[in-house]
Amino acid sequence: MSVAAAPTAEAGVAVAVSPHPARRWRAWDWLLALILPVSLGIAWEWAVRAGHASGRLMPPPLRLAETAYALIKSGELQTHIAATMTRVGLGFAFGAVAGTAMGTLTGASGVMRRLLDPSLQALRAIPSIAWVPLFILWLGIFETSKLALVALGVFFPVYLGVLSAIQDVDRKLMEVGRVFGLSPFGLVLRIILPAIMPTWIAALRSGLGLGFMFVLAAELLGASEGVGFLLLDGQQMGRADSILVAMIVFAILGKISDSVLVGLSRPILRWQDTVRDRL
């Protein structure tokens, strides 16, 4: 047993000594991750070109590239992206601000929690898409109702994240704040808000994800522009390539927005002492 264990221990020492043990193989990681999609794409492209498949329902990669290029050249894609991102951006801003404010309020005050949380939980039980008819009735079929839907989708994960994060704040740190003379408001500002920052960012990220889901729902239910409209239009025209391009655009937009959020939060979370960045 001890003989078998020895090499492991030596390997452990070697890892500890090397300066950047974890991130040395980044380039290889990329290559490895790309093998599967790239080879599938090449195989499909070959299959269609060789006449083994028609590619009508599942266009090959180069067809998609052509379609995307045409959409960009005509400026259509940019218009759709701008419309969608405006809706997500504004809806996210409203939902995140409201969710954070409500979460802080109910988290920091027991009275507020007992007053507001039951009602909010009841509202949460309604599947958010079920609000669509009411929003359209109240706010019209144009932008406002779409924004409201996105904001609603963002609100709940942020609210719940902030509320539970506040309740999880270490009592011991609160005591430090009290011993050194912080007022209740000071405690929120100097202890609670920094302490919940990691969970808050995580909640914002899931809120952003839901924001994209809800913007898509709003656009599918009636819009004259937006990436979701492109998707619906492709279906009605029987153009699988447009649909796939729209799907890929959604993936890219989601990924970029999420990365921006992570990038913005990184300096704020520098202090975190976790095994691996929680993000």
Binding site: K172, R178, V179, I191, P194
Partner: peptide, 19 residues
């Protein structure tokens, strides 16, 4: 309640990790 002239050191350092 707490008093401005009283301060404390706890068993654990209890530093604020973000400062």
């Amino acid at each position: 309640g707490t008093h401005p002239t009283i301060s404390a050191v706890f068993q654990e350092p209890r530093l604020l990790a973000w400062l």
